Simulated assay, not measured.
Amino acid sequence: MLSVHLTLLLAFTAIVSAVPLEKRWGGFLGSWANHNGRPSSSYLEFGKRFPGANSNAPSCDLSQAVMPIATTALLPPAPGLSLFHVAIGRGTQNYTCDTTNSTAVPVAVGAKATLFNATCIAASSPQLLAQLPDIALQLPIPTTSSSDAGNPAYADMSGHHYFLNPTTPFFNMDTALHSYGAGSFKKTGAAAAPASAIPGPNDQGDGAVTWLKLDARDAEGQVFQEVYRLNTAGGQPPKMCTGMPAAFEVQYAAEYWLWAA
């Protein structure tokens, strides 16, 4: 375990050192391991800075941010949309099992995750961004609430992702910390995660959940119009329900790219 953590930390330190950027994630990397060499619960400075008070505009050039390519092509953002926000999600994929059926398979019933701002990292250091879901998956699941504005460890918390029902993902990006918008979505595209994706914490698990394209259910009623879930790590359930409880969670992390008109 310790060697894995140190290897990741050293690799990312090398990436950061090679990029002539302002320090935007030092707090996060610095909290990656505590004095025992184990993951810390801190999630510091994932990314976006602000040019002035009460502004949602990033100080980095989002035209430089390019989404990773899926194994099966996902449709591009609709004409007229612009990249508004990129976040790292850390949480769980949720499943149920019919424990009375010996041949039952897990059924997805949604997810819940805390989102951390990585917008400027997406624009300035795509190599680092691509590794953040893997790193986040090794950290404890965040326990803060959207009203925890006084905790400096969550100063760059973008919001929360959860489901209103098994088929309606919701992004609540309006918190006591920032107001980015909120809205519900529907799945319009999916692609299998690459074979190289991290299957779960400590490289143990049943695989990474699919990459997704989500479209707004009510285009007129929300800021974000499309969301892409990319570079997933973990989240897949076992293939069968044998030995599983009626309801269970599987840890995951992912990039979320949010597009607005």
Score class of each variant (00 low, 15 high):
208 A>R: 00
160 H>C: 09
164 L>V: 12
57 A>P: 03
173 M>Q: 05
6 L>E: 04
232 T>A: 14
101 N>G: 06
192 A>H: 06
211 W>I: 07
68 P>Y: 03
244 M>I: 03
256 Y>H: 02
244 M>Q: 15
139 L>C: 12
130 A>Y: 02
86 V>I: 12
242 T>R: 15
1 M>R: 10
59 S>H: 05
79 P>E: 09
248 F>I: 09
136 A>H: 02
58 P>N: 11
27 G>S: 10
210 T>N: 12
189 G>C: 09
252 Y>E: 03
208 A>N: 00
99 T>H: 04
91 G>I: 04
221 G>L: 13
241 C>K: 00
54 N>S: 15
118 A>K: 00
36 N>A: 13
227 V>F: 02
239 K>I: 07
140 P>D: 11
228 Y>K: 07
42 S>H: 12
209 V>R: 01
247 A>V: 05
80 G>L: 03
234 G>E: 04
232 T>E: 04
90 R>M: 05
228 Y>D: 08
150 G>N: 14
42 S>Y: 09
259 W>S: 06
205 G>V: 04
57 A>M: 12
44 L>Q: 15
20 P>Q: 09
120 C>Q: 08
25 W>S: 14
131 Q>T: 09
180 Y>I: 13
147 S>W: 02
33 A>M: 14
81 L>M: 05
66 V>I: 13
211 W>E: 07
156 D>Q: 14
34 N>E: 14
175 T>C: 04
224 F>D: 01
107 V>F: 08
255 E>G: 05
205 G>C: 01
77 P>G: 07
206 D>A: 08
34 N>M: 10
